[in-house]
Structure formats: C-alpha cells, structure tokens
Design a protein around this nucleic acid. Structure first.
Lengths: 193, 193, 193, 193
DNA sequence: GATGAATGAGATTTCATTCAT
DNA sequence: AATGAATGAAATCTCATTCAT
C-alpha cells in the first residue's frame, strides 16, 4: 500500500485510462488494465472515479477544454479571415497530432448516450466559429459570397476526417498547408493570377 | 426447424449481423442477438461463420465491394475531370447515406487488428483514384498545378468526416453540391469571373 | 457439459436457490453457491433466470401459490366457524413446518421494493379471510361480538410470529392446538362451563 | 478533526450505525456510510469497534437492555395477573413503536450466527416471565388452568409478529387493547356474562 | 444441418478492513 | 486518536464458443 496524495493518484489513473481507452476503445478497455497501468488496485480506481463511464467522461471534458484554449489563443493573433481560417485548421491538426491518445478514443465510441450530447454541443460551437470567420471574410470582400454555414461544415468535416485517419491509416493524413491551400483556392485554375 | 438452403441462411445471418453490429457496435453486439434476429439458433450461426470476427469481416468486404461497383459505374459516365471529381464525391456521399447501417459500424471499431489491413488497402485505392482524376485535370489544364496526392488525401478526408458525422451529429452533414463547390473553387474570391 | 432438459435444470436451480436463500438470506446468498448447489455453472443459472431478483421472486410466488391451495383445501372441509379458524391456524403452521426453507427466507429481506408489494397483497388477502370467518362466527352466535378485523390481525400476527420463531429460536414454537385453544377461549376462567 | 471524548465519539458512531443498519439492513449497510453519518473517518470507527459485527452486536445489546428496563418498570405497578399481562403486552408494543429503527433491523437479519445466541437467551427470559405471570393467574383462580408455557409462547409470538408487521406491512398492526382482549377472553362467546 | 443448454473466463463494481501518515 | 487512500476478495452478470442430442 503505497500512500500518495489523492490528486496525484487521480492523475495517474487519468494517464493510464487515456492510454488504455485509446489503445482499445471504450468497450474493450477494462478497468483491471487501467488499474494495472496506473499502478493501483482495481478497487482503488473506484475510490477516485464512480465508474468506468465517469472516468471516460472526465477524459473527454479534458481534451475539449484543452482544444478550446488552444483555439482561442491561436485566433487571438490573426487579423485576416484567411489567416484566421488557416490558424484554425493548423491549430486543430496540431492538437490532434499532439494528443494522439486523447483523440484516438474519440473517433470511436460514438453513440454512447452519455457521450453524445456533450460532444455534439462542443462540435456545434466549433462549426459556428468557422462560419463566423467565413462571414467576416465575405464581409471584408476577401472571400467570395457563399453559404458560410455549409462551408463551415465542410471544413469541420475535413478535420474530423483527419481524426479518423489518425486512428485508421496514417498514410491518409494531410498537412495543414495543403489543407489551407485547397480550402482557400480550390482545385480549379484561376484565369488571371 | 425451417429448412433453407445454406446460402439463404447465410444471407439472413448477414442481414441480422448488419443490423445488430450497426445498432450496438462490434463489442456490444452479441451472437445470441444476431442468431435471434436471423431466426436461427446460436450454434447455427457457427455453422456458417467460424466466429464473430469472420462474420464482421464478411460484412466489411461486402460494403467495400458495393462501393467499388458504384464508384466505377459513376465514373464511367463522366468525361471531364471536374465532373469526375464531382461524381466521386456525390457517389460516395450517396452511398454513405443509403447504407447508413453498414457505415455506422465502420466509423467505430477502428483499430481491430483483424479489421485494419483490409480497410487500409481499400482506402488507399480510393485515394489513388482521386489523385489520378486530379492529375488528369492538371494535365488537361482545367486544374491548377498542385500536389495531387495531398489534395486527394484532403478530399478523401472530407468524405471520411462525413461518415463520422453520420454517426455523431447529423447536423454536421453537408451537401455534395456544397462540397464540390468548395473543393473546386475554394473560399477566396476570384479576380475576374 | 451434461445436457438436461431446460425445465429439469430450472427446477434444480430453484431447489438450490431455496436452500441457499433460506440458509443465508437474500443479500448473503450468492449466485456462485446456488449454481454449485444446482450442479451447474454460474452462467448457466442466468440462462434460466434473468438475475438474482427474478430467481428470488419465482420462489416467493411458488410458496404463496402452494399455501393458497392448501388453505382453500383445508377450509373446504370445515362447516363451523370455530372449526374453520382451527383449520386455518393448523394448516398455516403445518405449511410453515413442512416448508421450513421457503419460509425461512421470507421472514427477512423485507423491504425490497420488488418483494414488498407482492407479499403485502398476499398477506392482506389472508387477513381478510380470517376476518370473514370471524364475522360468520359472530353472525352464527358462536363468537362474541368483537372487532373482527382487529382479531384477524392478531391471529395473523401469531402465525407471523411462528414464522420468525422458526428462524430464530425453535423453542419459541407452539402447537396448533394450544394456539386454537387460546384464540378461542382466552386466558380468563369462564364462570360456568 | 474534531476532538471529542472517546465515549462521545462512540455514541455518535452508534447513532449513525443504528440509522444506517435500520435503513438498509446489516448486509447492505456499509462502514463508509456509517463513518460518514457519524462525522468520523472510516479508520476511526475501527478504533472504537473491532469490526462491523461488534458494532452490530452492541446495538442489539442496547435495545435489549432498554426493553428489559421498561418491562421491569411496567410490571412493578401491576398487582393483578390480568393487569400484568396487559401491561407486558402494552409495554412491548409501545417499545417497538418507539424504537422503530432498532426493531427494523432486528426484524430482518435473523440468522446471523453471531447474533442468534444472544437474542435467543433474551427471548427465552421474556417467555419465562410471561409464563410466570400466567401461573400466578392460575394460582389466583383468575385464569383457567392451562399449559402456561405454551400460552406464554403464543403470546410471545403475537408480539414477535407485531415486530415483523412493523417491517413488512403496517396495515397488519394491531392495538394493545385488542390484543389484550383476545388473549384474555378469546373468540368464543361466554354463556353468562 | 441444426439446436440451445452449458461452460468458463472475464467484465464491472462493492466493501470490510488495514496501515502509512 | 484520527485519517482516508489503498487493498483484495468476492459479488453479480455477460457472452463467445462448444457439443450432446
């Protein structure tokens, strides 16, 4: 029985849970493994988290908060809409890359009732943010008039696809630069450049 | 005991499995339920499929073949690169929409070892197909010169995102037209139109 | 894997459950022990009963039905109210004696929500039956006028006490004859006999 | 950390234990809850009571002592046997009513090995007391000659039934007056009154 | 071919008790 | 005296798979 502070242990469990959920998905991951990985007894985990679900949710909330903070910081520095869009895409991809584990477990386990609402709201916010940036671009005359909500959904889905690629096949991943270029300029050649 | 041909029974199992896996995911779905849904005994399922994994893989292969056929048919009719890209995107989205169930289970359960290699190869092929279309467009002078492989990956990831949106939050879905428009023309305003 | 008919196995489980619940009470009794006693695997028990609670409830319903049948049979033969009361008491005590196990588990585990309503209704019926018999006796002039419902409750509680005595201390048990005598005649000496 | 005298703390634990055991039964009640309710740490409970069982036993002993005191006080005032019997019954029922909690947990949890012997002896004493009162009544000519031990057991079982009714279904409870009336006079009409 | 009862391993969760602080 | 984190055993329940019929 190795005595640690509650908070310290809790963090160790979260680290272990992140790793385990990521590696095997929610359903497959088991508490025994998480406990083992955290260097604690199985019962010990339940001292800090009511159950498997709560443990999972804690992780979810964690990465959402982190991504939120990162995005806000990134956008603070960009004045131009095109630059802002680029910033948003780059930050998102960067985040996914740096938090491979957290994300790994988010691409799956989709239709948990306890999970959905939280995530849906979070994602809705992010789409709204993109749409706002596009609207600003249109207003400024930089972007061509278009359905900003629709465009926002598409951009959002590119990034969502990136997450899945992270999990399924890394050779499907793309660079932020390439993405920004396509999103801003499209495939079709411009008459005069 | 309803006498059926082996093939007939097998199909019924597949239908039941599709429904069950889709509704609950691989881990949660159980063989007893699939058997029940198929109107067959538990043991009966094992006469037609070695185990749960094989049953799952069979479903996977099925939808890949179907999507392959659909794509080939769609591209046969389009002569222009831009039209071909549009066709690819539209067909893909159409397929996902019509095969909600099959897809539902593909968005999750990603990193099963038994599952990955098969899917990875399939997806690689599809990316190559898009890249070829882009290359043709560049050669024809319709598309501006760019890294076709990168662009292909991005387009592929948009569609991949669509699949996840299907499962997570339907309000994140976009239309084929909007997607084609953004992919071809980008956000930025063109000088002369 | 010893194949038996489902019904046969179910009965064996019920026998085992009766013994186990009786010996240790609902909370203390465990499914492993019941399975062991029934000569079946733990999982096997769940093939026949959804869960511990359902298994318990089945037992409850069983003894209530049995006691109901016994009581009806006994009362059919008695024409006089005094004789009917005697019959009711005797049958009840006889039943408890012969079904020591079933009863054992009924004295305890009282405030299960799933348990209470069923039993409460059953017991209410039995009290009503006694009250009816007393009313008949009063109407016939054999019994002195009194609050029949109250008397019925008291008689019912004597029998209920018998059940507890069965479980707690057998030396507190009494004979049907003694009980009938006290209930009919009371303690106080009669002036003229 | 609230400094209290050992005795004070012990009392607080007993109060908490009474509440918790009563509310959930022995098996379901857990030490953490008891500690919480007592405003003490889990480990703290173990400084005052060797284990769960000892804590439970202490409570048992407590209510037995209390009931003993009450009974002695009640009987001190009654000179007539009939009055004494009435007093015994009334006091017992009164006690059960006022100590609902204690009783609640006694009605359940019957055959704990650690519990039985203590309770059995206590109950034996009480039956003997009733038998003595009846013998006095017979000797005095107030009561008709009968098997006093048997009658005592029956009266004792009525009261025991009352306890169970308290726990199972309150509509089965009876009044001390009705009980005394039935016990003294029985159901059968007296020729001359 | 087909059945479905049975298995057995493993999942989540609970909790009395201990012990380093 | 007191704390409360940790343990470890055991409980309920699930399920892919097997196999006697």
């Amino acid at each position: 029985m190795n005595k640690r502070s509650a908070e310290e242990t809790k963090q160790q469990i979260l680290v272990a849970a992140r790793k385990t959920f990521a590696g095997q998905g929610y359903a497959q991951a088991n508490m025994r493994r998480i406990a083992l990985e955290a260097g604690i007894s199985v019962g010990g985990v339940y001292l800090h988290f009511k159950n498997k679900e709560e443990l999972y949710q804690t992780l979810q909330r964690e990465w959402m908060d982190q991504l939120n903070r990162n995005t806000i910081n990134a956008l603070r520095d960009s004045s131009e809409p095109a630059e802002a869009i680029a910033s948003f895409i780059t930050t998102s991809i960067e985040f996914v890359r740096c938090n491979r584990e957290m994300i790994n477990l988010t691409g799956r386990e989709t239709n948990f009732s306890f999970n959905s609402e939280l995530k849906r709201g979070f994602f809705r916010e992010r789409r709204r943010l993109i749409a706002d940036l596009i609207d600003q671009g249109i207003a400024a005359g930089t972007f061509r008039p278009c359905d900003s909500a629709e465009a926002a959904r598409i951009i959002f889905n590119i990034l969502r696809g990136f997450v899945l690629s992270m999990v399924i096949d890394e050779d499907a991943l793309f660079s932020p630069e390439g993405c920004v270029d396509l999103v801003l300029n499209g495939l079709v050649r411009r008459e005069k450049q």
